[in-house]
Design a binder for these strands. Structure first.
Lengths: 185, 185
DNA sequence: GCCAACTATATCGTCCAGATATATTGTCCA
DNA sequence: TGGACAATATATCTGGACGATATAGTTGGC
């Protein structure tokens, strides 16, 4: 089976909200779905070119008073049909490559203090993330209560919270072993 | 900063256990660290060629009675020095691309029954994984109690358990909302 | 005796991420 | 007033990672 370009589908759903420039798309991704989905310009530009060639999106020049020429992309009817099929199809499983776990698995070849440092760094980043989630929950999401999208947005946020809390607990447990349990027995 | 080839480092640590063929390496990865690290032949072959060229691993032909010629790779002293530095360096954060969450975020554009199907499929796979973890804990890991590697191996397993349980709970919670809560209010 | 499954090697296309290049405008502050 | 810097906005290149595919001998079951 041919490899499917996930970036193209992601761009189609995003452009179905409203027409955007490449820069807008990138900013939107980072702000709203950044914690579970990433796109870089290196993917967006070729994908938009491809989508334009297949008539799934339309490109038009927007007038700007400042900066370089601004090109805005909008989804076509054919584009909407295309992503409807994709939405219904079974999502592919995530592929994980966790460098921290790799280093920990071969832990005896390294230094315990290094592992502790790495774990504390991860713990800090995960706690930061939890704070961000709480902020979004309180100050962003709440505004949209009643909107049809609201429960869907909330459920993705809750995924992040569940998994992040699990990582935090694991960090704490593992740090405790590395710092104390290591000496005993 | 130049991009670092993670596959090469992974191969170095793996080959530091014992000399292996490309096929052995792939099997080893799948069996032991497969739930947090993946390698395909498309990465392993070029990486081994590169490592051989840099004298970090040595390639030699092993005698075989059957099948195609078998080439076994072993780590050199230079190779051991190289991966020691990498072990101590801060691991790069995981990059996630969760297609299920992407579809759920734009859930109002799709069909609730599709979301339910996708979530049930994820829930089943995560429950399977939990069973596998329990098997490994009971029948594999227990044999190595007392070995220095044991607590490190156990901690990576516990990471999987924590995070997988979090996903299971989220699936259940989200399914409940989609099946029941959706009708009310 | 043939087909399927396993062992084992290897390459190709393409997706994806990050670094980099270029250019304009607004803002801070010395 | 001038310079540094951040933000807006476009776009490309390199190389790492993934999945499909090709090839071929061995083993075991029907």
């Amino acid at each position: 089976m041919a490899k499917s370009n996930k970036t193209e589908y992601a761009l189609l759903v995003i452009l179905s909200i409203e027409p955007m420039s490449c820069y807008d798309i990138r900013s939107y991704v980072q702000q709203s779905i950044g914690f579970f989905w990433q796109e870089s310009y290196g993917q967006i530009y070729p994908a938009l070119r491809q989508l334009t060639a297949s008539k799934l999106v339309a490109k038009r020049k927007a007038q700007t008073s400042r900066g370089p020429a601004r090109y805005v992309y909008s989804i076509t009817k054919a584009g909407r049909r295309k992503f409807a099929n994709w939405l219904a199809a079974e999502p592919e499983p995530e592929k994980v490559r966790n460098e921290l776990l790799l280093k920990l698995y071969f832990g005896t070849m390294g230094n315990p203090t290094d592992h502790i440092r790495h774990l504390e760094s991860l713990l800090a980043s995960q706690n930061d993330r939890l704070k961000q989630f709480a902020q979004i929950e309180k100050h962003v999401l709440r505004q949209y209560e009643g909107v049809p999208d609201y429960p869907y947005w909330r459920s993705t946020l809750r995924f992040g919270q569940h998994v992040t809390r699990a990582r935090v607990r694991w960090c704490q447990e593992t740090l405790e072993w590395l710092k104390n349990g290591n000496n005993k027995k």
